[in-house]
Design a protein around this nucleic acid. Structure first.
Lengths: 145, 145
DNA sequence: GTCAAGATTTAGAATAATTCTAAATTGATT
DNA sequence: AATCAATTTAGAATTATTCTAAATCTTGAC
């Protein structure tokens, strides 16, 4: 598990990944990405802002949100929650997963396979449930594309 | 798939489930639960508030949040996001899951099994990724209990 | 090189989501 | 009836996120 790779390669990689989504690599995006790589503790946008500000004092709030969006859109980072904004609720306690349509935002219940392979949690951890969320396009939105 | 069960049994069931967590069944909690059961479209707290208000005009915002918390805590409803509040980010694009410690809130990366059984998405849906989140207690918090 | 078009950043305002507070109410218990 | 704890209420406060308009930067066409 190497923490840092060749600095050159990284810029290259970022440029490519962002480019494939029609976005540019900017110093701010680089910085925000570096913050994420540097301490992998799933920081909030606010945390990222605070950390990025140390190396780049003029960076703004909005830019951090923008950069995080850019990184997520181009597959360089993941957002731990299903989506930003309001939390959603569901009374279905039977084991099932959620399908989140990235176009219209609707969330559908989906069946999970009978056989759920057990996930190894670290020693000493006690698991008592799990969630599965699938991302993609629902039938309607897939058709429109 | 029955939508409604015997009204009596339901009150009974709610009382038991809530009771097991040291909580009471109140008319407001009943109402909020009914809203969730009535239209299973993963509403936000605000949506639940609006719907509950129709049958119970004096219900307040804070109560809806309180009731949703109570239902989630006692296993009568699920919260679709990992947790309320700020969204978190992670630069690890290698397939992995997240472990969310419900005591301290920390999120840990966990390995997923090699063999991921394919999940059947409804006809016409196009999936392009998924997230797995496990809930429980991390080693430190499990020890403290 | 220069210029126009478009992307990006900035500060700060605006909005949305959630939590907090203090007083009133309810219910169960003595 | 008095007491205690849980719950609800309205509304304020806080936190998270998005928006806005102006400034800056890049890129590509000339």
């Amino acid at each position: 598990m190497k923490q840092r790779s060749h600095p050159h390669d990284e810029g290259q990689h970022l440029t490519e990944q962002l480019g494939a989504t029609g976005l540019r690599l900017t110093p701010q995006r680089q910085q925000v990405y570096d913050v994420l790589l540097h301490k992998r503790d799933h920081p909030t946008a606010e945390e990222v802002f605070i950390r990025a500000k140390k190396a780049m004092p003029e960076i703004s709030h909005a830019t951090v949100y923008n950069c995080l969006d850019a990184l997520v859109k181009s597959g360089l980072a993941r957002q731990v929650n299903v989506e930003r904004g309001a939390t959603r609720f569901c009374p279905n306690m039977i084991e099932h997963g959620h399908f989140h349509c990235s176009a219209c935002g609707t969330i559908y219940d989906v069946d999970l396979p009978r056989e759920i392979p057990c996930v190894a949690v670290p020693r000493g951890f006690r698991a008592d449930g799990f969630d599965v969320t699938i991302h993609g396009l629902c039938a309607d939105c897939a058709k429109k594309k």
